[in-house]
Design a protein around this nucleic acid. Sequence first.
DNA 1: AATGAATGAGGATTCATTCAT
DNA 2: CATGAATGAATCCTCATTCAT
Lengths: 208, 208, 208, 208
Amino acid sequence: MNTPPKRRTLAPEARRKAILDAALAVFSEKGFANARIEDIARRAGIGKGTVYLYFPDKESLFKSLISDALGPLLTAAHATLDEPDLDPRETLAIFFEMVKTEVLGTEKRDLVLLMAMEMRNFPEIAEFYHENIIRSGLALILGVLERAERRGALRSSKVLKAPQVIFAPALLSVIWDANFARFGDLDLDAAFGFYLDTLFKPAEGDTP
Amino acid sequence: MNTPPKRRTLAPEARRKAILDAALAVFSEKGFANARIEDIARRAGIGKGTVYLYFPDKESLFKSLISDALGPLLTAAHATLDEPDLDPRETLAIFFEMVKTEVLGTEKRDLVLLMAMEMRNFPEIAEFYHENIIRSGLALILGVLERAERRGALRSSKVLKAPQVIFAPALLSVIWDANFARFGDLDLDAAFGFYLDTLFKPAEGDTP
Amino acid sequence: MNTPPKRRTLAPEARRKAILDAALAVFSEKGFANARIEDIARRAGIGKGTVYLYFPDKESLFKSLISDALGPLLTAAHATLDEPDLDPRETLAIFFEMVKTEVLGTEKRDLVLLMAMEMRNFPEIAEFYHENIIRSGLALILGVLERAERRGALRSSKVLKAPQVIFAPALLSVIWDANFARFGDLDLDAAFGFYLDTLFKPAEGDTP
Amino acid sequence: MNTPPKRRTLAPEARRKAILDAALAVFSEKGFANARIEDIARRAGIGKGTVYLYFPDKESLFKSLISDALGPLLTAAHATLDEPDLDPRETLAIFFEMVKTEVLGTEKRDLVLLMAMEMRNFPEIAEFYHENIIRSGLALILGVLERAERRGALRSSKVLKAPQVIFAPALLSVIWDANFARFGDLDLDAAFGFYLDTLFKPAEGDTP
DNA sequence: AATGAATGAGGATTCATTCAT
DNA sequence: CATGAATGAATCCTCATTCAT
């Protein structure tokens, strides 16, 4: 007399992906605490209980969401930045472009915000994130900057002591879009361009 | 049918302040959703119900926390930045210093984070914040930058199209400290110094 | 630094009366459970704590309200109904009139409703009410009716087995007014008149 | 983070009915404000949360209780009273019998009381009840009485101006049983019989 | 005597999680 | 495998009651 369960038996990996996609959407919209498993399930087109066949609990689902999206990001960054022969300005330009295309222009944008929001409540995530992304990302960036410094192309060597500022515009972008998009856009190209213009001395010497 | 009280009154404004302090601490630590009123009360050294004598509900408490700290901030910023005769680099240096002293070095640091995290769930706060802080703060900064541009002191005019980047290091600092402080500090002076060094051309012409 | 307590020190009996009046109003409007002591205090023009100087708790206040209004009622009824020489119809007419004037036309009307509403939660009140009002009131009425019966003036002796019906119109009036007054009045005179007309045979014989 | 369920499903309509039954019992015993959802749940043999699967909140549960029992009542009354050819006395006798069997003899008796008690706090219920039950019920009764009047069978035409009195004994019965049953019964048959005897003139002429 | 700030028990409601179907 | 009905811990908020001033 009850509705029979759907037997759509999607490929398990596809199903897992669908859940993670739905989770990203719902977590992004509401934050971890306010996201209801049922909402995620509904959005994934499945029943509440099914989520638990793929993830043991809400927290695991959240962490999987993070981890699953993090690996690829890192790999991509490595490939881009670990190019010792390239011009540093060029390298960073490519990196910014990659960040724009691969992160800020996709749903992963929300993931960044989500992490910034919830790392506090999930110290393991902060740890994992720092170990796997921040630390090596910073090392990569630092490599590029030091290369530039050695070539005398760096305008201010202070950035070597706070290489995190390189990520600042991207972070700003994420937060701005999440909260203030409706009041006006942030010109991301201008922001990145500004960084590239001021970070490095011009290739030649074109004094004013 | 019920149980008796324990402690006795305190200056009402002091009490209100104590609650707001406790709220800042607890909200910062747990986020809005995970903060329990009882925790805030206990931290303020009072009973659960007392909180409700000062704030009608959890949301109001949260909003008061924000509003109470916002006014002073804005006033201070105005006083600092609205100085048309000062050298732009100097002005910005003072501003950065002020941000460091008045915000990043105080508990208000957590407030910034808190807002960045919860504005999503409280659109009115985003609106209020944008109208009262962001918009005018941006205008002030833009004023300074344009003054520099008119004097030919700006290295890249692109920053005029994305003046928000000026705030990026401060935002980065807040998020870094909240989440990654245990893994290593962010050198804020270096970050601000880097900005000042690269943003403006040197007063005279030194080197190349 | 706090507002000093009012020292209006009203005569204690007047103060007690004022509280009971306020209590009647508030209890009537909201029912026992939804009435707040603070509302009663405010309505009586005093502070919350003062109520507790006159009544040990909410329940006592409620019970006092009932008892205080009940005694006089009973005394009055006795005086009216215990008149063996009077014509039964006349007696009942006087009684109805008294009920109309002394109860239904005053705030005590609400008291009746209140009791009907809360006796359930306060069995002692039901007991007290039955012992002191119902039982003797019923006895009085029965006396009148039996006198009429002995004179052959009663149209149907069945009323002797359910003398409570004599009170039914008054009860109906109270409930009607409380709930449906805004949709239209109940014609109380018609209701009482109908009772008098049909209960007793005409003094003489005026056949149709 | 939480605890597991215990029991398993039941036909949804049966479950809903069980909750409403439990609610009637508990609301009747304690009144709306003093009834605890948990009590209702326990009485229905289910967990607290389950109640909320069937009714959005306490108030809705209460209103559903009323509405669910009201429709049938009205339909029944219509069928009984809207019989223009029947003898008025006979019609009313049938109506009284129906009230006795269908309401006063069932748990709906408590519902009547409940409404009389709580309409004050739920004006919408009073409105709904008046519109759907009282108004049309009164119209039906009035029809019967006017028919009687046209036949010259009415002892006192005053009842036409206060037809609500016809319901008075039923209301009295409900309140009496709820509060004073333990002190002695109300003879309902005598009460209704008294009404029938006095309301109408005898069919023929049998001695004064 | 009078006050009202302070208290915490009590109850409505939400939602992660389980498991019978 | 999939489902969603059922559960109860957890948390917000109210308000009777106390007692320092």
